[in-house]
Write a protein that binds this DNA or RNA. Structure first.
Lengths: 136, 136, 136, 136
DNA sequence: GTGGTCTAGACCACC
DNA sequence: GTGGTCTAGACCACG
């Protein structure tokens, strides 16, 4: 199970923060298919939030097809993760690219600077994934 | 005045959608300093939105220093626009970069492909800005 | 808005009973696309259940694409209802047909009797739909 | 003894899935009166289910009068099977008929098509029952 | 122990 | 007024 943190003063609701961390954990391979998640009660104690709040995050993730629950046994990352449309996926990437350029433009950065920033972010990401692997 | 679109079923509140489109319009140069904005009533009719909602967007924008109202004359883009905190700006860029990489990772793209996509998005953006200028 | 009833001692959870009545209402044309539903608070008073229970039903229906909410305005039947796969739809029909035959077999009915029962059920259904239309 | 399948992520509890398959097996004649059932342990290994879960299913079936255990000998299908209330049986048939019509309506089928589907399902059912008999 | 459901309240943001 | 979120409890069924 991955380490999670929540920030109660973030404008993103708590249950969404949890959803985001879990989906990103899955996307980045930190949560394997079939892996068991903490029970919502246990996680609620660890993060000091109400159990229902965690449950809501789990419920939405289940509706989206990322995780699945088995009564009395627990909650697990799905073996077959939901596949977005290829077109959908690329749309999201393009949307994120546009967002990046907009923010960069607002900050007055040149294109080469944006690419550098992107490279750096890439390094940070692969580093943290490497760390994960070492642990294993 | 720029053309705006609102989506009532978007998660982002309507008044925020309006704020975003105006600030981005300013940042991208589609709204010039000193330019007059539509009145509450006019805009509320055009967008089919309650006038109070428009007013809230304008009020917040005025509090942030992007626009100013002159009694009896209307609402105008400020001559001296507020500068965001430099650190804040860069944080937003980094956040957007991370988001782009994550989406790209989900779509299974390699880094070089991401950069290509980014270049393409850049071209589209500058193209549409050029068109805007022609109109003027 | 359709009339709903809930039976607290039914083994089907309350929020599911509500979901079922709404989806059936949509399927049978008693709830039109775009129609506004009662607010979850109002409905919770009418049915004498906790507001969150109604909200849960609405939330699940929204995740399934049957209804959509607009903050501050209310909850509405979607204009474009979710289309199941054709194959999926027919599978459900076949499954229901098998279930009917099984129950009929347990009750010792002959095939012709089953068809008669089906015809009768069909009449009841169209009758109640006709009544709805008269109201309008 | 009939072949059973359980699906841990089905909404229906595992012990109920077992009960359903046994009662249907009896109703359809695949399990004869007096026939011996597998022991808890054997069945729990075959289905990869906790022995207590099987025991619960057997206990409930015994309470309902479908099966009986003879100490030291095993568990057997009762010679005199319980008869459901006649009204109850017919109610179930009507309920299944309504369900079939609803699903058919959603799939846009006409009544004659429903009857055809029903006939086909009937053929499949009798075919599979014939096969069962051949095996014996 | 696990998840599933439900209650009765609360506060907030939005329209 | 509306929906959105959260809490702190409770009881049940399941494995």
């Amino acid at each position: 199970m991955i380490q999670m943190i929540i920030n109660p003063s973030d404008e993103l609701p708590i249950y969404r923060q949890i959803m985001r961390q879990i989906t990103e954990g899955i996307a980045l391979g930190r949560l394997k298919s079939g892996e068991k998640l903490m029970s919502h009660r246990e996680l609620s104690e660890q993060l000091v939030v109400a159990p229902l709040t965690i449950k809501k995050a789990y419920d939405e993730l289940e509706a989206l097809g990322f995780i699945e629950t088995q009564r009395g046994r627990g909650t697990f990352v799905c073996e077959r993760l939901p596949q977005l449309d290829r077109r959908d996926q690329l749309d999201r990437v393009r949307q994120a690219a546009r967002q990046l350029l907009l923010q960069a433009h607002l900050a007055g950065l040149r294109f080469s600077e944006v690419v550098n920033l992107l490279k750096q972010a890439g390094r940070e990401l692969t580093d943290s994934r490497a760390k994960e692997k070492e642990k294993v």
